[in-house]
Simulated scan of single mutants.
Amino acid sequence: MKKVLVLLLVIAMFASSCAVHRHTIGKGPQSGVTQSSRQWYALWGLVRIGSVDTLKLAGDKTDYEIYTRVNGIDWLINFFLGWTTIQTRTVSVIK
């Protein structure tokens, strides 16, 4: 039984990385420099807490990519805070 629970936990952790969105602005990333921030949500993603300003993360660049995902750290946060309905996602701007 313990092995089944561990297997389910590992599958759930890897399945969460499927929640990825990429948005290419202009010609896309040119230098490979990345700025990241964490977006917080309540009620399992229905209510946004705070705001990640992608224009601020991009700076003066006009060619970049916005990459949002649930990574390993987010998964751990979501695992421990999920009962409180708090969830996170990582937002990265690749210049």
Rank of each mutant, 00 (worst) to 15 (best):
S17N: 13
V6R: 08
V91D: 08
V6W: 05
I49P: 00
F79P: 03
T34D: 00
K56A: 14
R22E: 13
G82Q: 08
T84F: 13
F80M: 10
L8P: 00
T62F: 08
V6D: 04
K2V: 11
E65T: 09
I94V: 11
G82E: 08
Q39F: 01
T85Q: 07
Q30S: 09
L81H: 09
P29L: 02
K2Q: 15
D60A: 13
Q35K: 15
Q35C: 03
W83L: 11
K61Y: 09
K56G: 04
V4T: 12
V47A: 06
P29D: 14
Y41S: 06
W40Y: 14
R38D: 06
T54E: 10
T90D: 07
W75A: 05
A12H: 04
T88Q: 06
L46P: 02
I73F: 12
Y64T: 02
L55G: 10
R48Y: 00
V33M: 06
V33T: 04
G72P: 02
L43A: 11
I25W: 07
V20E: 13
H21Q: 15
I11R: 02
L43D: 12
K2M: 13
V52G: 01
F80C: 07
G28S: 04
A58D: 04
I86F: 10
R22N: 15
R48V: 09
F80S: 06
T34W: 03
A42K: 12
E65Q: 11
T68E: 15
V6N: 05
L57M: 08
Q39E: 07
L8F: 07
A42S: 10
V20G: 02
V20S: 05
I11S: 04
T24K: 08
T54P: 01
L43F: 13
T24G: 00
K61M: 05
L57I: 04
K61F: 04
D53M: 01
M1A: 14
S16Y: 03
L81I: 03
A42V: 09
V10P: 02
K27I: 00
K3H: 12
F80E: 08
Q39G: 00
V91A: 02
S31Y: 02
S51G: 04
E65C: 02
I49E: 05
V93P: 01
V33C: 00
V70D: 13
A42R: 11
R22V: 12
S51Y: 10
K61N: 11
I77D: 05
T90S: 07
S51V: 04
L9Q: 03
A12L: 11
L55C: 01
K56L: 08
A42L: 15
L55W: 06
K2D: 14
I49Y: 10
K95R: 10
K3A: 15
L57S: 01
N78M: 08
R22D: 13
L8K: 01
M13F: 09
G28P: 00
L5I: 11
L5Y: 10
A19W: 10
V93Q: 05
T84S: 14
A42D: 14
Y67G: 05
V70M: 11
Q35D: 01
V6Y: 07
R69L: 15
G59P: 01
P29N: 12
G28M: 00
R69H: 14
I94A: 01
M13A: 13
L76Y: 09
A42P: 03
L46C: 04
I73M: 10
